[in-house]
Nucleic acid binder design. Structure first.
Lengths: 255, 255
DNA sequence: CGTTAAGTTGACACGACTCAAAGGCGGTGG
DNA sequence: CCACCGCCTTTGAGTCGTGTCAACTTAACG
């Protein structure tokens, strides 16, 4: 398979890169490590370690509460960094667990130092990646705060479709998404039983077709409208996109 | 009033700084601008502009949905940056609105370039600030996903107490927090009516005393226990803190 | 005083949770 | 090859948290 490196595929969205930069990114992938499914890559409370990213497979970030409940706060698809950011903080405040067999790449500190010193476009792309992560967290927060479970789940599928398509893993609006319903529930902040009912409702309404750990979206525009999905926050395109009308709050001045 | 600059107060938590660095931070505050309450500092959809931070007053980040509902996704207290991060992305994906009269400081690009080139400790502290913002978003996401409204609100007050205390604005577990109940509701993802009932319940239970736009916490440990508040995510102390037991998921291996 | 924004209250509807049990499905071992 | 087992999904019934709508009170302000 001559699929291009997903890291490159993703970072090229952030900024155009020279051939030398692309070579450099390829050469980062020396230290590969295969990891089975349902395995913790990073454990809440661990000290920071070297920077890693997902080359293939799928994983999620999650936090656990004292009562045993769990909250999934983000997904890692091929090309996403595990911990580009946390090294500067003393301690990692969340866990990362694979949901499929995955390949992760460990970037030696020396490579990073080298890039920092001599490849400003790559540094800029790294920055971009962390900022997109943060923008995604903000979007998830509004999704969770102001949408009911069915629209939330639709929104999640819209996001997965776009992110996977960006790295070539979603053809014809079909993609592999090996989540059990308990994981869907922990992502949306609902119970497993309710997640099941929502999945069924979306299926009945013909919005998504979930089968065999794969998702198919028969009518993407319709699903996006239902989910009120505005892809701008993923910053996957540098083209200007209109984000629709923005409410002007009452009793509020403009600076 | 000889209160030290809140930016300095905050960034010193991240890393010890030389006298020269401290001077440099003070000298950033040349371009001050006074802004009235309920004024938009940044509007969703705007192109990025120069970096700013809050010197005094209070503001919040928020996103609006097409149906007019609003989600508040973060608070800015003195010493917090508005937009340290978003300049690299093409477009700002959320708004910032003041909730009190505030003073914001505009940092000229030339000052930033200068710092980037010659003050690595300050750059590191800037990084730290964005990472704490991101960690806070993750915590908010789990708070919203897995806690009921009363514990959520308690959690919000615990966070405000600690963050304000870090910049000297919360003495004796009392602090100024000029939020109307609609804003509380939009922060927690609940309705205004329900926010009102939760406030009353917390008052009755003697957990918080909200009066005249100020919050007093009679028994901070008790409130923290009720809210399941673990301050680690704010990274306000470099001391190791124990975060309690972490659930080991079933059917999950350790990498 | 009249006006407006914020806080409060009650009644009712509905989304979501819990508990419990049953069905599907792929393993593994006898 | 079948029986068994564990994991996941599905279903039902009852409860509870939260939303909605509407009215009323209180405080702030000119």
């Amino acid at each position: 398979m001559d699929m291009p490196n997903p890291l490159i595929r993703r970072l090229r969205i952030a900024a155009p890169m020279s051939a030398a930069d692309l070579d450099r990114l390829s050469s980062l992938c020396r230290n590969r490590q295969d990891v089975p499914a349902r395995t913790r890559l990073i454990r809440q409370g661990d000290p920071p370690r070297s920077v890693r990213f997902v080359l293939s497979g799928m994983a999620y970030r999650h936090k656990s509460l004292p009562d045993g409940s769990r909250s999934i706060i983000g997904y890692l698809f091929p090309g996403d960094f595990c911990d580009l950011h946390v090294a500067i903080l003393g301690k990692i405040d969340h866990s990362i667990t694979t949901c499929t067999p995955s390949t992760v790449v460990d970037i030696p500190q020396s490579d990073l130092d080298d890039i920092m010193a001599t490849a400003p476009d790559i540094v800029r792309a790294f920055w971009w990646a962390t900022l997109v992560d943060e923008a995604t967290l903000r979007e998830w927060l509004t999704r969770m705060g102001r949408r009911r479970a069915d629209r939330q789940m639709a929104h999640l599928f819209c996001e997965a479709q776009l992110r996977l398509a960006a790295v070539g893993l979603a053809e014809d609006n079909r993609f592999f998404l090996p989540l059990i319903q308990e994981e869907l529930a922990d992502t949306l902040g609902i119970s497993t039983v309710h997640a099941n009912r929502v999945v069924q409702k979306l299926r009945e309404d013909g919005l998504v077709d979930i089968r065999d750990q794969a998702v198919a979206i028969p009518d993407l525009p319709r699903l996006r409208e239902f989910a009120e999905f505005d892809p701008a926050y993923l910053h996957l395109s540098r083209l200007p996109q209109d984000t629709g009308p923005i409410r002007q709050g009452p009793a509020e001045r403009v600076c």
